[in-house]
């Protein structure tokens, strides 16, 4: 009934569909552009940086932006532009490690839960529900308090709280596909369970997993920065954006640039991943 009225409604005119087609690609374009900029900054950091990000020139401490130091300098006289640029490398590393670990663990778990079912499904999903009950930051703090502070330990913690997202997603995809005709046909032809898992289910899950990974990337950058800011992630003198702002916090009213520029970089990066993820979701998964 609702489908009929939706189809008849004048809102779905050709011009409107065209506009939507454009706006979806606009999201992907804008988001992709921002992420591309961060990637470019990470790759070209050595070329674009006016100075070494670790070199301390104490006589030049806490300078405001100038031609020589476009973003100014920090409390140790290090060039802030160089540190923000090198920070892009760390942030992308965070995304690759954080999202990568979560996908590597979450996807097989969800796949197993969805295709095998029964007790395996129940135990896996119970574990995921327990992890999911924790607010991400709180779980990460608990894990870091055990493993000790440090960027890599923090990324393990962030990956752990992202695992349930992928497990749930993968399980839903698997459950949806399991009863599809072509999967049943494959089973009737004698395909083994592993073969069905990989050839028929996993391949079709690629789209949703890519969308989710893009959206998780933003969360990973934000969480890693937050926890580094609290001193539980990247340690000085690493040019991690959150850790840089942790230094900047001591110079409020003296030099705001130490906090301003790393925060701007975080915003542009997360914004890029979020817009890109929204666009990809609209494109690859029109239902939601």
């Amino acid at each position: 009934m609702t489908e009929i009225t939706a189809a008849l409604a004048p809102t779905d005119s050709k011009a409107r569909r065209r506009r939507r087609w454009l706006s979806r690609r606009r999201s992907i374009f804008i988001g992709g552009l921002l992420v591309g900029l961060v990637l470019l900054a990470a790759i070209l950091a050595p070329l674009l940086s006016p100075a070494d990000p670790y070199e301390q020139v104490l006589s030049d401490a806490l300078l405001p932006p100038s031609w020589e130091h476009p973003f100014g300098t920090d409390d140790n006289g290090r060039d802030l532009l160089a540190r923000v640029l090198y920070g892009a490398r760390l942030s992308l590393l965070e995304v690759v490690v954080g999202v990568g670990l979560a996908v590597l663990v979450g996807v097989p778990l969800g796949l197993a839960a969805g295709t095998i079912g029964g007790l395996v499904d129940q135990v896996i999903m119970w574990t995921m529900d327990v992890l999911f009950a924790f607010p991400g930051v709180v779980l990460a703090i608990l894990i870091v308090s055990i493993l000790g502070p440090g960027l890599f330990n923090l990324l393990i913690a962030i990956a752990i709280f992202s695992v349930p997202v992928y497990a749930r997603l993968m399980r839903n995809v698997a459950l949806g596909l399991k009863s599809m005709d072509y999967v049943e046909a494959a089973r009737a032809l004698g395909a083994s369970t592993p073969r069905i898992m990989f050839d028929h289910i996993l391949r079709n899950a690629l789209g949703p997993v890519i969308v989710q990974s893009t959206l998780t990337a933003g969360t990973v950058v934000l969480s890693a920065a937050s926890l580094s800011f609290l001193g539980m992630g990247a340690q000085p003198p690493m040019p991690e954006w959150g850790a840089m702002m942790s230094d900047g916090r001591n110079y409020l009213g003296v030099n705001i640039y130490m906090s301003l520029f790393p925060g701007l970089a975080i915003m542009l990066t997360v914004l890029g991943f979020n817009i890109l993820g929204d666009g990809l979701r609209d494109l690859l998964d029109p239902r939601s």
Binding site: A225, S226, G242, M245, G263, V270, L271
Partner: peptide, 14 residues
């Protein structure tokens, strides 16, 4: 979309 992309401690510092 911007509000979901901002680090809240950055806003706090500013």
């Amino acid at each position: 979309i911007a509000g979901a992309s901002i680090a809240n401690f950055w806003l706090a510092l500013l």
